[in-house]
Structure formats: structure tokens, C-alpha cells
């Protein structure tokens, strides 16, 4: 994190290469674990792009994730795959623009409630459309992808997401965002076009989330609203980003990786108590380290010096 870019980039590239080569050497199950983990690293990082600096807690993750999956389900037989992904990104972007324009003036708890409602609204709209217009509930995605193909796509997307996050953190835009997060009124007085900056970030973040859903869709073969608009996705993303620390570049990833592995271990070892343990973890994270693990470590270090 404090590494100079001249060192950090080659290191990151080497790690990326190792991760990309991994499925050739490990069993399918571990590729599946890496796949799920990379998906959540991307989701959490993309979520934190907007929600971290602005402190607007969004529960709309699954709205965009599900839209991405649905676009693939609808178009996978009509268009070549790269175009399907482009369409998914485009539709996610348009949806985020529409939502952002109408709601980013909401603040605090109102925004949280709205985003939770949005996920439900999108799900109901898709259901209504399928029931009354197309008369199909449940769509098939028959794309010739195995776990590792999906994993490679997600890995590329994760790299792009981290790169975007890094670039924004160094730009004027990042500075503007930090100002908004500290005090929106002051930021506005300092000449920052608050709404435009928030909107831009919201759209970038939502588009990346939409792409995660689109890339993962072929893994389930069968898509219906209750499958892809599962609210757990929103909550998991949120808790992962919060654990790692949503204000830092590597924070969400460092939250997503241990939590994902922990969840995986819990589902193997305690299949009957998963939900209870998940709930307890939520409470623990919010109470013990509201700023995330990385901030907690910093705190402890500073405390030690003082």
C-alpha cells in the first residue's frame, strides 16, 4: 500500500499471473472457490468505489448483479458473447444513470432504504415483464464455459476494478470524493459539483457490479428472478467491504478473501448453523471495527507508539 508504483505494479502483475495459472494446477473445486472469491473481491471493491468515500451505504448491489445475469440469459443465444457482455454493461450503466439521477440527493438512512427497495423493485419488474409480456419464467444459459473460463474473466474484471479504484484514488475526482465524504456542504462550497461526482462514481461502480453478474450467469445454467436477485449478495458484499475497510484500495479485497474462505469453511463444517454465525459476525464487525480491519491495525500501531 505504501509501495512505490514502480515496485507495486510488477508485484501485482506477478500475483495476477500466478492466480491466472492456478486453475491449470488445482482441482476443480478449488477453482470454484477462487471463482467465488474473485467474484466477491470484485463486488466489494466496486461497491467501495462509490460507497467507501461518499459513505452512502448501498444495498442495491444485487439489483445490478441480477440485471447483468438476466441480460446474459436473454441475449446469450441472440448475440456473440462479447457483445452480450457489452450489452450487459450498457444496460447496467443506463439503469445506474436513471437511478442515480433520481436518488443521489437522498442522504443517510433514506438512501440505504431506497437502495434496498431498488433491488426488490428491479426483481418485481423483471418478474412482471416475464409473466405478462414474454410468458417465460426461467431462462436457460447454455454457454460452453467451465469454472475456469468464468474464473479468468472474473480475474480480469477484478484487475480492472482495482486499477480503476487506484486511478480514482490518485485523481482530482478521488480528492473531490473524499471532500464529499467528510462534509458535503463544505465540498459544495469549495466548488465541487457534488451531484455530478457522486453520479459518475455510482455509474462506474454499478457497471462493474453488473458485469460480475453477467460473467457469473453461465455457471448456473438456469436463471430466474429468485435465483439472481438473492439479497444475500448485497449483504455479503457490504459486510466484506466493511470488514476490510471501504476507504482503502485493498480494503474490500482484504475483507472479501478471509470472509469468503471462512464462509466456505463454515458451510463445510457447520452446514446447519451457517446463518446464525453469519449474523453474529455482522454484529461483531460493526461493533468492534466499524472502520475495517486495516484501520484497526493502524489504530493499534498508533496506540502502541503513543
Amino acid at each position: 500500500m505504501t509501495m512505490k508504483p514502480s515496485i507495486a505494479f510488477p508485484v501485482a502483475a506477478a500475483v495476477l499471473a500466478v492466480l491466472a495459472a492456478a486453475p491449470l494446477f488445482i482441482p476443480d473445486y478449488w477453482t470454484g472457490v477462487l471463482l467465488g472469491m474473485t467474484g466477491y473481491v470484485t463486488l466489494a471493491t466496486a461497491w467501495a468505489l462509490f460507497s467507501g468515500p461518499t459513505r452512502y451505504v448501498s444495498l442495491a448491489t444485487v439489483a445490478f448483479f441480477g440485471v447483468g445475469a438476466y441480460v446474459v440469459a436473454v441475449l446469450n443465444e441472440a448475440l456473440p458473447y462479447p457483445l452480450v457482455l457489452l450489452s450487459a454493461a450498457g444496460i447496467g450503466m443506463i439503469l445506474a444513470l436513471a437511478v442515480g439521477l433520481s436518488t443521489l440527493r437522498l442522504a443517510g438512512v433514506y438512501f440505504v432504504i431506497f437502495t434496498f427497495g431498488l433491488a426488490e423493485l428491479v426483481r418485481q419488474t423483471v418478474s412482471w415483464w416475464e409473466v405478462n409480456i414474454t410468458y417465460t419464467m426461467g431462462r436457460y444459459v447454455f454457454l460452453p464455459f467451465e469454472g475456469r473460463h468464468i474464473y479468468w474473466q472474473l480475474l480480469a474484471l477484478a484487475a480492472v476494478t482495482l486499477l480503476i479504484s487506484w486511478a480514482i484514488g490518485r485523481s482530482r475526482l478521488g480528492l473531490a470524493l473524499k471532500a464529499i465524504g467528510d462534509d458535503e456542504v463544505v465540498a459544495a462550497h469549495a466548488g465541487i459539483d457534488v451531484t455530478r461526482v457522486k453520479l459518475l462514481l455510482f455509474v462506474i461502480s454499478a457497471t462493474l457490479i453488473t458485469l460480475v453478474g453477467a460473467i457469473q450467469a453461465p455457471r448456473w445454467t438456469y436463471i430466474e428472478p429468485s435465483i439472481v436477485f438473492n439479497p444475500t449478495v448485497s449483504f455479503m458484499t457490504l459486510i466484506m467491504a466493511l470488514l476490510g475497510g471501504p476507504m482503502r484500495l485493498w480494503g474490500p479485497a482484504l475483507g472479501a478473501i478471509p470472509l469468503f474462505l471462512l464462509f466456505e469453511w463454515l458451510s463445510v463444517s457447520f452446514p446447519d448453523h451457517f446463518s446464525i454465525i453469519l449474523g453474529l459476525l455482522f454484529i461483531l464487525i460493526v461493533f468492534v471495527m466499524p472502520q475495517g480491519v486495516l484501520a484497526k491495525i493502524d489504530d493499534i500501531r498508533k496506540g502502541g507508539r503513543a
Partner: peptide, 22 residues
């Protein structure tokens, strides 16, 4: 060996991978 898929499509896929390869 019984797992809970928690009504999630991704979980059920991974659980079957786990059963088959692990």
C-alpha cells in the same frame, strides 16, 4: 455427506464440485 446450499445457486454448484472433487 450433506451440505446446505442456503437456497443459493452459486452455493449448490460449488457444493457439487466439492462433493465430486474434494
Amino acid at each position: 455427506i450433506a451440505y446446505d446450499d442456503r437456497s443459493s445457486a452459486e452455493e449448490v454448484v460449488r457444493a457439487v464440485e466439492r462433493l465430486a472433487t474434494q
